[in-house]
């Protein structure tokens, strides 16, 4: 069977649609988590959701449904702990994470299911996606995208300056809870493709790649969605293509998706470093008058447009940055500014 034959299969097309929507939704909500410096919230919810999956396996209900419920409960608990601002909030979160993971593995064992059935949820699995799952994933991903993009101005205000947002009458606590719930739903949506243990990467890594180049919040979120959607679809294809090799390796889609997103970060990062360095070097000097008139020492070099020294705005003129000095042209000589 060739890759093209594989692509013609129903389940493969379903899986690609699910991966695309997951790749769009996870970074959209992830942008707000990064803005609030809660990049690991998705990871915590993912761990808690393992218990949800296990409860589904134990009771014979759809693990997707039980995972949504438990993930939302976990996300609300994490948000409440965070908001209370306990000094040991970190530890409380860690207890929740590990409790969720350990509970999940234990309950799966009780259900008489092996590690293999849990593995599909931990690292994703294309073949395990049923038709019903796809509609579920689609529905939830569309809800997450619609709410996130529709409430973008409010969510941005709350994430970037909660004090200001509260005085402006935006219900900060309600929006923070909404973000936690949306993150929980996203985790469940992404469970089938990237898996619970790597979902946080799909929420955070595309944002990290996008913010290297973006100057605005909107550009960051759009760029992150592009990176996430691209990595999710391409990663799924890579994992499918590898399964066609003669040795028949089974590569879960999750690791392929995450490694692709990391590769995109690795590609944008040096560019971001260079852009930030340039911006810092060329940032205008405070428009204060020089303390006194002080001509530079003997100065054979002529500063100009492309003389190789950064020309930095200083009030109504430019200073050339030259060996740690700031040289401003003054008649026939240069002044120290």
């Amino acid at each position: 069977m060739s890759l093209l034959d594989l692509l013609a299969l129903d389940f493969m097309q379903r899986a690609m649609l699910a991966a695309l929507l997951t790749g769009l939704a996870a970074p959209a909500i992830g942008t707000f988590l990064v803005q609030r410096r809660l990049a690991l919230l998705g990871d915590g919810i993912g761990h808690v959701a393992v218990t949800g999956v296990a409860l589904g396996l134990l009771t014979g209900t759809s693990p997707t449904w039980t995972a949504v419920v438990v993930a939302i409960l976990g996300a609300v608990a994490i948000e409440v702990i965070r908001e209370q601002g306990h000094t040991n909030g970190d530890v409380a979160l860690a207890l929740l994470f590990y409790g969720g993971l350990a509970g999940g593995v234990l309950v799966t064992g009780l259900a008489g299911q092996g590690a293999a059935s849990l593995q599909a949820y931990l690292f994703g699995s294309v073949t395990s996606i049923s038709g019903a799952d796809v509609w579920f994933t689609l529905g939830l991903a569309v809800v997450v995208l619609a709410v996130t993009l529709g409430l973008l101005p409010q969510l941005f205000a709350v994430a970037s300056d909660p004090d200001f947002a509260q005085v402006a009458g935006v219900r900060v606590r309600a929006y923070n809870l909404l973000v936690a719930v949306l993150a929980a739903v996203t985790v469940t949506v992404a469970m089938r493709t990237v898996g619970l243990l790597l979902v946080s990467a799909l929420m955070v890594v595309p944002v990290a790649a996008s913010q290297q180049l973006a100057r605005s919040f909107r550009a960051t979120i759009v760029g992150a969605m592009a990176v996430g959607g691209g990595a999710a679809v391409a990663g799924l294809l890579i994992s499918a293509a590898l399964s066609l090799l003669p040795s028949r390796p089974t590569v879960a889609p999750g690791p392929a998706i995450v490694l692709l997103a990391l590769a995109m970060f690795a590609a944008t990062w040096p560019l971001g470093v260079w852009l930030r360095h340039r911006r810092r070097v060329l940032a205008p000097f405070a428009a204060e008058e020089p303390v006194r008139h002080e001509p530079a020492d003997i100065h054979p070099h002529q500063h100009g447009d492309d003389c190789g020294h950064p020309a930095v705005q200083h009030g109504d003129h430019v200073d050339y940055v030259h060996d740690g000095h700031r040289h401003a042209p003054h008649g026939e000589h240069y002044d120290e500014h």
């Binding site: 942008t31 990064v34 803005q35 609030r36 410096r37 990049a39 101005p153 409010q154 941005f156 205000a157 994430a159 970037s160 300056d161 004090d163 200001f164 947002a165 402006a168 009458g169 935006v170 944002v207 913010q211 973006a214 100057r215 605005s216 919040f217 909107r218 550009a219 960051t220």
Partner: peptide
């Protein structure tokens, strides 16, 4: 409180003042 973990443009920050 002006800058968070993600870049934001001057216009975006000013626009959030309109939320009232």
């Amino acid at each position: 409180t002006a800058a968070g973990g993600v870049p934001a443009s001057v216009r975006e920050v000013v626009a959030s003042g309109r939320l009232t």
